[in-house]
Write a protein that binds this DNA or RNA. Structure first.
Length: 134
DNA sequence: GCCAACGTTGGC
DNA sequence: GCCAACGTTGGC
């Protein structure tokens, strides 16, 4: 299994909305690096959900419910979406500050390349985040 | 194919 | 609201 992280501004689409919806297709990604990461996702892969701008914290864990297909919001263009479904809401959210201060997490793409909206997470980072979320 | 200009994202 | 980082666009 591979691990990932997606970002969303809670004013655009929040964790609570995802819980309410049961699943969502991750539309609107218009960045090649992010798109390619989505295309590499396999069904069942675990994906952290991060709130950017407001909150700046990882709020929960999702999984890939459906592998990539053409983004319906960009007909005729070469963009992709995946479908994500919630797995669990974190008891403790993990803030960006915590991530930057944590020895095992400070190397994350989230810190190094702030603007990327879909990114891979290593197995070690994955375990550490789950540990901190309890 | 290089690189300057510009737009967007996101942390502070 | 500002600004740094970085991706994209377009002129040459």
């Amino acid at each position: 299994m591979n691990y990932w992280l997606v970002k969303s501004e809670p004013t655009a689409y929040s964790w609570d909305e995802l819980l309410k919806d049961g699943s969502t297709s991750w539309t609107g990604v218009r960045n090649y690096a992010a798109r390619n990461h989505m295309r590499a996702m396999k069904k069942g892969d675990h994906v952290f959900f991060y709130h950017s701008n407001e909150g700046k914290e990882i709020v929960g864990l999702t999984k890939v419910a459906k592998e990539f297909y053409s983004d319906p919001t960009a007909p005729g263009e070469d963009w992709s979406v995946v479908e994500l479904a919630p797995v669990k809401t974190f008891k403790k959210t993990i803030t960006l500050t915590q991530i930057k201060e944590d020895k095992r997490l400070k190397g994350m793409w989230l810190v190094k390349q702030g603007r990327l909206s879909v990114m891979p997470v290593t197995a070690d980072e994955y375990e550490r985040i789950l540990e901190l979320s309890k």
